[in-house]
Design a protein around this nucleic acid. Structure first.
Lengths: 190, 190
DNA sequence: TCCCGGCGTTCGTTATAGTGAACATATCGT
DNA sequence: ACGATATGTTCACTATAACGAACGCCGGGA
């Protein structure tokens, strides 16, 4: 399928996957032999994979993921290292609406973390986002009605609501204020 | 590696992957022949995979994901509900540690939303995640020291801290309890 | 009507992922 | 010091993933 000088082929993802396997294994203080044994693979296979040479099948990856007790997709994650980022909390005046974008990541796909603070008796409309976007509300304190415009829901402290962000949606407080964490995740556009 | 009556083997994940490929392909109104062409695979291979018989290598899956313009992991995940999801807040006993996974999605990013509640004078250690994983803390209430083990930081209400989740990290409360939203985002191999 | 161009499937064959054995080290307990 | 048992690597071999070529099927012209 692919050119190779000799022995195993080397694909771009293979190297990343190999590194990931080794990382996770060493994190658990597990030896390669032991992992191979637990996964029902040969030491040789694991050695090749961790060396970045190879092209494992999903069966093999699945066996490894199970042996490592992690979801299969965790073996397919790749490196991008940001340093620590600190965003201090802000004070807002009584009765003000606070709509702050605290953090945005765009490594391929987009992830946004907002803090939304609403005083009592406030009505906000959410801008529809890209198709496939999922919006998550986690109520830090207070009480509000929120969600898709056609099916909103009353939320209290600790409640989490996830809904499609590509439809019109609303946030509304009644008697008291509310403090909400909003996480917006957008997949790639097809 | 695995018993098979004849022809291709059939693993549990293979069936799901096959279904996922077919679904994504049909979503785009693409014919099997065309997808095979774009991905640089033979029609035969694709046919086998979509039939749930088979055990593709990551190279093959990668080629398909690229041709379909979706992240590789989307082929390995069963459909995540786009419909509204509601997770009610929970009560925990005074002095208890609450560590709840509220939501996990795997479209584009692997994204996890946790709620972490800690009583006073508590010390927790975070399990290192995949390389490149970014962990976000948003303090709903209280005060705690958290972050990478070698550079923790004192956080108060409304503060947000983002740091690499692939290194050991800690959460520690002193005088009072804390309620924290934790968002864990992992990039994906593409 | 009969082609012709697509489609998806099923064959035999070929390339290669995974295996098991042998190997070189390293780390024990006696 | 010495075997005994761990580790990770390299090899030839085997099992099988992917291939190319055939097949039957369907819809659109001529």
């Amino acid at each position: 399928m692919m050119a190779a000088a000799s022995g195993r082929s080397t694909s771009s993802s293979a190297a990343a996957v190999g590194a990931q396997i080794r990382r996770r294994r060493e994190q658990r203080g597990m030896s390669g032999s032991e992992l191979a044994r637990r996964a029902g693979l040969s030491k040789a296979t694991l050695s090749q994979l961790e060396a970045g040479k190879g092209n494992p099948t999903i069966e093999t990856l699945d066996a490894l993921a199970i042996a490592l007790r992690i979801p299969l997709t965790d073996l397919l994650t790749r490196d991008t290292d940001p340093g620590p980022v600190f965003v201090p909390g802000t004070e807002i005046a009584e009765g003000e609406v606070g709509r702050e974008l605290l953090r945005r990541i765009s490594s391929g796909h987009s992830l946004e973390i907002w803090r939304l603070r609403m005083p009592a008796h406030t009505d906000l409309t959410g801008v529809p986002h890209a198709t496939g976007t999922v919006e998550h509300l986690l109520v830090a304190s207070g009480r509000l009605t929120a969600g898709p415009a056609d099916a909103p829901r009353l939320l209290g402290p600790g409640d989490l609501l996830a809904f499609a962000g590509d439809a019109p949606h609303l946030y509304r407080t009644d008697a008291g204020p509310a403090d909400v964490t909003v996480v917006i995740a957008s997949p790639i556009v097809g």
